[in-house]
Simulated assay, not measured.
Amino acid sequence: MADQTARQRARRAALDAQARMRARRAEQERRRDALGVVVVSALAERDAVVAACEARAGEALAKMTEQEGLSLADAVEWCGGADLLTVREAARLRQAAQPSAVVRPGREARTTDADARADRVGGAGAAQGGSDGGRAIG
C-alpha cells in the first residue's frame, strides 16, 4: 500500500508541474499574440502614412511635368537632384498618383499605352494632350 501511495503522490506532483508549465506557456502565447498584433498594426499604420506621402509627392511631380512643362529629369533637379530622388522613383511616384492607374502583375502601373510612350520620352503631357487628364488640380 505504501508503494501505491508514493506513486500517487509522485503522479500528482508530476501532473501539477505539467499544469503549471502549460499555464505559463498559455500566458506566454497570449503575450506573444498581443505583441504580434501591435507589430502588424504599427506596420499597417506606417504603410498608410507612406502611401499618403507618396501620393502627395506624385501629385506635385505630375503638376511639375504637366502644368509647369518640365521634363521629369528637370523636375527631379528642382527637387534636389538624384541624391534625393531618382528619375525612376519620380516616375513611379507620378504614376502612382494617377487615380486611374491600373496595376498589372509584373508590370508598372500604366493607364494607357500612350502614357507608357510618354514616360519613355520624358513627359506625360504629350500623352494627355497637355490637359489635366480629367482630374481637378487645385
Rank of each mutant, 00 (worst) to 15 (best):
A136E: 15
E54I: 08
G69P: 03
T112Q: 07
G129P: 05
G58R: 02
R32Q: 08
D3Y: 04
G36W: 00
Q28K: 13
G81C: 02
R56A: 08
M21D: 10
R56S: 11
D115T: 11
D74R: 09
D3N: 05
D74I: 02
S100E: 04
L85R: 02
A114I: 01
R20I: 10
R20F: 15
D119Q: 14
G133I: 15
E66I: 09
T65E: 06
R24M: 14
G130Y: 14
A13K: 15
A96T: 06
G134I: 07
Q28E: 12
V76S: 00
A52M: 08
D16Y: 14
Q128P: 03
E68Y: 05
A91Q: 12
M1Q: 07
V102K: 15
V76P: 00
A34Y: 08
A91L: 10
R120E: 15
A52V: 04
Q28M: 09
R9A: 11
S71M: 02
R31G: 07
A96N: 12
D16C: 13
A97C: 01
E68N: 04
R22Y: 08
A75C: 02
G69L: 00
D74A: 09
R92L: 11
A75T: 02
A96G: 11
A82G: 06
G80K: 07
G69N: 01
A136R: 12
A14I: 10
I137N: 01
A55N: 09
A34C: 10
R32L: 07
D132R: 11
R30A: 11
R56K: 11
L35W: 08
L15S: 00
A23G: 02
R46H: 09
A97V: 02
A23H: 01
V76D: 00
E89T: 15
L35I: 03
A82T: 10
L70Y: 12
T111I: 12
D47S: 08
G129Q: 03
V39I: 10
G58S: 04
S131W: 01
V38K: 15
A97G: 00
V40H: 07
V103C: 05
G133S: 15
D113I: 02
G123Y: 13
S41W: 03
E68W: 06
T112N: 05
S131H: 02
V102P: 10
D47I: 05
E89W: 08
A14Q: 06
E108L: 14
G133E: 15
L72V: 10
M1S: 09
Q8D: 07
R12S: 14
R104E: 04
R31Q: 11
A91V: 12
D132V: 13
G138W: 12
V39P: 03
E27Y: 12
D47G: 08
E68Q: 14
A44I: 00
G125T: 01
A60T: 07
E59Y: 10
V87M: 05
A10P: 06
A10Q: 14
G129D: 04
R32S: 05
R12E: 07
A34T: 13
R20L: 15
L93E: 05
C79F: 11
A109T: 07
Q67A: 09
A19M: 01
R107M: 06
S131D: 00
R32Y: 11
T86V: 08
D3V: 09
A60G: 03
Q4E: 14
R56T: 09
T111H: 07
A118S: 00
M1P: 05
V87K: 02
A97Q: 00
V87E: 15
L70H: 13
G69T: 00
V49F: 06
D3K: 13
A91G: 11
R88H: 10
L61K: 01
